[in-house]
């Protein structure tokens, strides 16, 4: 593993290995606190994403390393018209590993081709965001103890939600995984995901518009935001928006050990009243994000 551009770059074994390292970091943080001493992580955020950037910076600092970078394209040489390749070549001379987020799809592929140091894709437009998927996987592993034999409800915007598409692609590699796809008609999962990922891997799935219908079957409920701008007309949005807001009432019939996840930021799709419910795992998920990023940095720098 030299770069991480797409979750599909990782084999099941490599993912397992990262998860094991992350779990060990959670148990023994001190053991890792100086692993990256003297190393520099560059965070190149050509578009802002405070949460992801801080998670990476925190990960590197917890490993004893240092960070440098920029948080928006305006404060970089991109504003002067510099290409991704040139930026990466230069920054590669100043750092040991680069994390980049870019609004254009495929920009990290260009970077990886030219870079002399490992590249981590921290999101390229609506395309890939592999460390979010790794975060989701670590959350599932830590909260459920397994990847197989799980019924996973995916709720909200299943059409444009890249986190949902990547999570499906990652989870279909494990046995006995079922999906309940909960979305309004307008935001159903694209047919190519059904054909090329679910059907191809003979995965059982049910599509429904009703969030409560299969609630008692779910081991995991992964929520995403239903955005107004995805609808053709406002009337449809108003009709549907509340159906996908998770509150105490909707999870009344859920399993005791249901794990509710959300990639965050949340707007109003999960009621704040659920936050203290032990089933709510979305803030823990953010914490796991830092640990899996620590494991990834170590792996790419060959420090573990």
């Amino acid at each position: 593993m030299k770069h991480l551009i797409d979750i599909k770059d990782l084999s099941v074994e490599e993912i397992d290995e990262l998860i094991e390292v992350a779990k060990d970091i959670i148990k023994n943080p001190d053991k890792y606190s100086k692993k990256c001493e003297g190393k520099i992580l560059a965070t190149l955020f050509f578009e802002p994403s405070t949460r992801t950037r801080l998670s990476f910076e925190s990960a590197m600092l917890r490993l004893g390393g240092n960070v440098l970078g920029f948080s928006e394209a305006n404060s970089s040489s991109t504003a002067k018209g510099e290409s991704v390749s040139d930026t990466i070549r230069v920054v590669g001379e100043y750092s040991d590993i680069i994390v980049m987020r870019h609004p254009k799809e495929g920009a990290p592929v260009v970077a990886a081709e030219k870079s002399i140091v490992p590249i981590i894709n921290a999101g390229d437009g609506g395309h890939n965001h592999p460390t979010q998927t790794l975060t989701d996987l670590l959350t599932i592993k830590c909260e459920k103890g397994r990847f197989d034999n799980l019924t996973i409800g995916l709720c909200g915007d299943l059409k444009f939600g890249r986190t949902v598409h990547s999570l499906i692609s990652a989870m279909v590699r494990y046995p006995k995984v079922k999906f309940i796809l909960i979305s309004p008609e307008e935001l159903k999962i694209p047919s190519y995901i059904k054909k090329e990922v679910l059907d191809k891997n003979k995965i059982e799935y049910i599509e429904t518009q009703n969030i409560e219908e299969y609630m008692n079957k779910l081991d995991i409920l992964y929520m995403t935001r239903v955005q107004k701008e995805r609808f053709f007309n406002e009337a449809d949005y108003i009709r549907l928006k509340d159906s996908y807001i998770l509150d105490e009432e909707k999870i009344i019939n859920s399993k005791k050990d249901l794990c509710i996840m959300h990639p965050l930021p949340r707007v109003n799709e999960i009621s704040v009243k659920i936050d203290n419910n032990p089933k709510a795992c979305y803030f823990k998920q953010a914490k796991y994000g830092k640990f899996i990023r620590m494991a990834l940095i170590l792996k790419l720098l060959e420090e573990c």
Binding site: V84, P103, K104, E105, G106, V110
Partner: peptide, 13 residues
């Protein structure tokens, strides 16, 4: 043809 592709802004690729 994807307007969001990196090739849409970096013509030399």
């Amino acid at each position: 043809k994807n307007p969001r592709c990196i090739t849409s802004i970096e013509q030399e690729l």
